[in-house]
């Protein structure tokens, strides 16, 4: 139970993937100008993270480790991610054209979103030891990808609200746009650090 809580808090807040690990910054800066697309992007990322988290765990535990091809991890993972993104895109198009309209343009971008590759690689380091999955490894991995996605969405949402407001103000010209967004992210990170060490 403690570990579950620790994973949730670390991934959502104190080790937030955007603010503290800088993963997923490109889509973060790209789609955080307005709230609506930010929500869609957040949902799409959570979705892709869950599917790729499950797929990479299975392949890593049952193919890569037994055959001792750990050096293929990066290539295999990125292929899994790219193909699951493709698969999700086709599936959503078939099942719900409405949802496809909302998420469609964001899905291809997620392939090169470092958060997906990042979390799945970190999973293999956190929840595998000596070439074997640790106890509850699969459940922890799924929880970790889910929490990472939630944290991504939380910060994306907060940022979109702030940037909508910033669009109306007169920031000095050379700080306008991205530099001020970085400064906001920096102060947000400082604030989130207040929750460090929660137990």
């Amino acid at each position: 139970m403690d570990k579950v809580l620790a994973i949730l808090i670390a991934n959502i807040i104190t080790n937030n993937y955007i603010l503290f690990k800088f993963m997923g910054l490109c889509p973060f800066l790209g789609v955080s100008k307005q709230t609506k697309p930010a929500i869609s992007m957040g949902l799409a990322v959570i979705f892709v993270l869950l599917i790729s988290g499950i797929m990479t765990w299975i392949i890593y535990a049952y193919v890569i480790l037994p055959f001792h091809i750990e050096y293929m991890r990066t290539v295999v993972f990125i292929l899994i991610i790219a193909s699951s993104v493709q698969f999700i895109e086709m599936m959503i198009l078939k099942v719900s054209p409405v949802l496809y309209k909302a998420l469609g343009i964001y899905l291809p971008l997620i392939t090169t979103n470092c958060i997906v590759l990042g979390v799945t690689v970190i999973n293999t380091e956190d929840f595998f030891a000596a070439g074997k999955p640790i106890a509850w490894s699969f459940a922890y991995s799924v929880l970790q990808v889910f929490a990472a996605g939630l944290g991504f969405m939380l910060v994306l949402l907060l940022m979109s609200g702030i940037r909508e407001r910033l669009a109306l103000t007169d920031t000095p010209e050379s700080l306008d746009g991205l530099p001020i967004a970085f400064i906001v992210a920096s102060i947000m990170g400082l604030a989130f650090m207040g929750l460090l060490g929660i137990k």
């Binding site: 800088f22 530099p179 970085f182 400064i183 102060i187």
Partner: peptide
């Protein structure tokens, strides 16, 4: 620390 990285890059 991480927030410092964002601050330096922004500035």
């Amino acid at each position: 620390l991480a927030p410092g990285a964002l601050l330096v890059l922004g500035l």
